[in-house]
Design a protein around this nucleic acid. Structure first.
Lengths: 177, 177
DNA sequence: TCAGGTAATGTTATAAAGTAACGCATGACT
DNA sequence: AGTCATGCGTTACTTTATAACATTACCTGA
């Protein structure tokens, strides 16, 4: 599923509904730290917390949902609940987007943790309409086909959005090759 | 460009900035009539007018812009200016979307007339960040790559969104092969 | 031709998503 | 210590979209 350990061949992407997600989150946070350090960017407590909230969600999460959870974070951990307002969240998300730590799903107005933050890429997503999960794939054939087409026309590519809605194998019950 | 006569090889898509767009619009409306008749759908005056407004715009147009123009349509033609409210426009757009007469560009929250309403397809778009034009392409290699990937994972595809932002050849000044 | 249903549109109100603008705080560098 | 940039708080607002209900238009069979 969305945040299963990266499997770039796509095979097991929608498989483990019940994996240890906390572990994924931790790992993602560590990688994020590393990336920010490398890039001289500041992963502040707030940004870190937003990233964590995005990752914790099993499905793409909207900015206002992040906001709501951010405000509730008092009880849970030590972080005192923030008196956050929308700009707070949007700024954090913008930061995370800029550094490739999250992706935005345009067709859902929602955000997901990036599964391969190491590489520079625009995400490609398979989004299940039933369970809501979004699997990030990275298919070179798709990317290449798009780049080729653009080049033929003389179009300079900046950002590529590929979002496929449908049913994941778990939800169709269909076996997959 | 966006509404140039369909060129599915993509070649001349961004070429004619100053073509006779009125002609495109007319043609699109005729085709739309035909399609609706064939499908037993009612292309009411309102829907027709919304479709026309979308087509008249050289760039993807937002629902609220359509609304504004709809309200101004008094002076222009005989159609008395409608006291339209948002739902009016959104309903018309939904109808047009359902029948494949327009596409929605998710990354812009905007709509464009469909260049090949005959065929069933989700659109693929090259969107110029400078001039705002959106060229609809239909590249089988891209579609196929996406379908193949989905099939491999066992994912049932419903709708595919491909949106490429960048610079069109006119705006880069770059020649194209 | 008119009763009754269905589809389309009008109308009001509100929800959801996103941003502008300004000011304070923090901490990084001189 | 001073100052400068960055991050965040806060207020207010814009833009985009929809829910819910009223009304009208249109079609169909008695």
């Amino acid at each position: 599923m969305a945040h299963a350990p990266a499997a770039s061949d796509g095979t097991a992407i929608f498989e483990q509904a019940e994996h240890d997600h906390a572990h994924c989150v931790d790992q993602a946070l560590h990688v994020a730290e590393a990336i920010c350090t490398r890039e001289g960017a500041r992963l502040t407590p707030l940004r870190r917390q937003v990233l964590e909230l995005v990752w914790r969600s099993h499905e793409p999460i909207g900015a206002y949902d992040v906001l709501a959870r951010l405000q509730r974070e008092v009880q849970t951990d030590g972080t005192d609940g923030r008196p956050a307002a929308p700009p707070t969240v949007y700024r954090a998300l913008d930061f995370l987007l800029k550094h490739g730590l999250v992706h935005r799903i345009e067709s859902l107005n929602a955000y997901v943790g990036c599964a391969h933050p190491q590489q520079d890429h625009s995400g490609q997503f398979l989004i299940c309409q039933e369970c809501g999960n979004a699997a990030e794939i990275e298919d070179d054939t798709i990317s290449k086909a798009i780049r080729d087409n653009a080049r033929r026309i003389g179009f300079t590519v900046d950002r590529v959005t590929v979002e496929v809605s449908g049913r994941c194998p778990r939800c169709t019950g269909a076996p997959h090759a």
